[in-house]
């Protein structure tokens, strides 16, 4: 139980405090923004993959992996949301407004970095898919290039998780 929780049992309507609302907005942003970023990134990769597969269907497995790389940010956002929802004990406890704002702030790194890094990783994936289309033997190296963008999503994920866990 977090130190900011003020009540554990009450009527359901009374549990939706301002603090809970702030926390839920942060959690929603973590899921929505990182999810949007991943959807855009995977969609870009998908279009490039379709272009390559039209000419070289035998490269399906390789381009699929490259297409899916920007999808991880959406999962990171979901992970942070699950942990935060568990911590605020939504539906069971009431949060003070300051506590809610802290949860909101803790969710922002993965929300914002997740959105931008997924879109940028999608662009890097598109370039790598084109590279694999031309030189299938470079798959290993081509995969590393968009994977580098993942570093920053992981850093944001760590900050969000560590912050939420310590509230």
């Amino acid at each position: 139980m977090g130190t900011f929780l003020v009540a554990e049992a009450a009527a359901p309507a009374a549990l939706i405090s301002n603090g809970t609302l702030y926390a839920l907005v942060g959690i929603a942003l973590a899921v929505i923004l990182s999810g949007i970023g991943s959807a855009i990134g995977v969609s870009q990769g998908g279009r490039a993959a379709a272009g390559v597969l039209t000419e070289k269907p035998e490269l399906f497995a390789r381009v699929l992996i490259l297409e899916l790389l920007p999808g991880t940010q959406g999962i990171y956002g979901l992970l942070v949301a699950f942990i935060a929802l568990g911590k605020i004990q939504f539906g069971k406890a009431v949060l003070e407004p300051e506590a809610g704002l802290l949860y909101f702030a803790a969710c922002l790194p993965i929300a914002i970095v997740g959105l931008i890094s997924a879109i940028q990783q999608g662009k890097a994936s598109v370039a790598s898919i084109a590279l694999v289309g031309k030189k299938p033997e470079t798959f290993g190296r081509a995969m590393l290039l968009p994977a580098m963008v993942e570093t920053y999503a992981i850093l944001a994920l760590l900050v969000s998780i560590l912050t939420v866990a310590n509230l």
Binding site: A48, V52, K56, K134
Partner: peptide
């Protein structure tokens, strides 16, 4: 994006 990827393969 689709067209460019397909054309890059055709360049081969």
């Amino acid at each position: 994006t689709y067209a460019a990827a397909r054309i890059h393969v055709k360049e081969l």
